[in-house]
Simulated scan of single mutants.
Amino acid sequence: MAGSGFAYLNARLRARRSQMVPELFFQQALGQSFPDFVRALGDTVYGPDMVGDGLADVDRAVASHMQRMVGDLPGLVTGNMREAVNLLLLQADLNNLKTILRGKAAGQSPEEIKGRLVGGTLPEVLVNAMLQAPDVASVAQVLQLPTHPLAKALRAAASLTDPLALEVALDRDFYANSLEKARRLREPALASYFGLQVDATNLTTAFKLHALGVTTTEGYFVPGGSHVSPVLFNRVAAGDFAALEALSGTPLAPASAARNLGELERALRQILLSKAAQGGKDTLGAGLALDYIRRKEWEGARIRLLARRAYYNLPADAVAKEVA
């Protein structure tokens, strides 16, 4: 893969990284009223996207900003370089699809679900149609995109009645496709990151299986990781958290002390953000795009969470750990 195209993209990314919301904003937001939060957000790079002063307006501003600052990245490069950058945005499609399916299972309204969606490659009209679809089979019918890796995966898994099994089926297809493509494109930073995400996914699934009391773990393990073996997966799913000591000396070591899903997800989020940050050294590949996209997704998620804390007048400690 030629480095010249990425040299141009990375120069643009460095300029955009310098405009990210400063940490002080997030610290101050923990104690602000909703009107004060909206005013403070209007003074950041999200200001041009703010139209109105309600919670839904904050969500729309985040979505619009992400589309401008992240959604345009594949268009700045061509060929294999575009494929590599687009691969990173497909991750948001996976997360959005899971969020939609979870929301529907919980009986949430389309508006509630939409407030938690992030970027991605799917056009808004298609996302809105998925939000209005009554069930999984209907969502699969809406997602009729022949070249999208999740479309075929969802149609194949739509008959599954276990929500967790459905998500794992999507994960399995998505990561198999992503790992194969990252290696074919000769993007080691992306392949390494996706491999670590597979490990993180398996740990999360094992914790969920234990919490649900599921004793049969067959079919829930996603291949492609390097540090979480099927044996470790099964032990954790059975409640043997001491088995996590096997992660010592691996990038997943900070997660070894987790004993519940909340602790695990916070540790994994930090691990994956740190892993993505290593891509900042990848001057001739898609590593810097990986770092920037994950930073912006985390920035948008924090803004939305803090907006809800302020809107519902929740105490700061209710979300402090989640936005740290």
Rank of each mutant, 00 (worst) to 15 (best):
M1F: 12
A2R: 13
G3S: 13
G3T: 12
G5A: 05
F6W: 11
A11H: 11
A11R: 09
R12I: 09
R14V: 13
S18R: 14
E23V: 11
L24T: 14
G31Q: 13
G31T: 13
S33V: 04
P35W: 08
D36M: 06
T44Y: 01
P48G: 00
D49F: 15
G52M: 10
G54K: 12
Q67A: 14
Q67F: 09
R68V: 12
M69E: 15
L73W: 01
P74S: 04
T78G: 10
E83C: 08
L90G: 01
Q91R: 15
Q91T: 11
N96L: 06
I100S: 08
R102H: 14
G103P: 06
A105S: 13
P110D: 12
E111A: 14
G115V: 10
V118R: 11
G119T: 01
T121H: 05
V127Q: 10
A129P: 06
M130V: 08
M130A: 07
S138R: 11
S138P: 03
S138N: 04
Q141H: 09
Q144S: 15
A153C: 06
A156V: 09
A158K: 10
T161P: 03
T161H: 12
L170G: 05
R172L: 07
Y175I: 00
N177G: 09
K181F: 00
P188T: 07
A189I: 09
A189R: 12
L196P: 02
V198H: 06
V198P: 03
A200Q: 05
T201F: 03
T201H: 10
N202H: 07
A206N: 04
L209C: 12
A211V: 01
L212E: 12
T216R: 15
T216N: 15
G219D: 05
G219C: 07
F221V: 07
V228K: 06
V228D: 06
S229K: 09
L232R: 05
F233R: 02
F233A: 03
N234T: 15
R235S: 11
V236F: 03
A237L: 04
A237F: 04
A237Q: 01
D240N: 14
D240Y: 08
L247F: 09
S248R: 15
L252R: 03
L252D: 03
A253K: 12
L261A: 09
L261H: 07
E263Q: 15
E263C: 00
E265R: 14
L268I: 04
S274I: 01
G279H: 00
G280N: 14
G280D: 11
A286Y: 00
A289S: 12
Y292M: 04
W298T: 11
R304F: 00
A307Q: 00
A310W: 03
Y312C: 08
P315D: 10
A316I: 08
A324E: 13
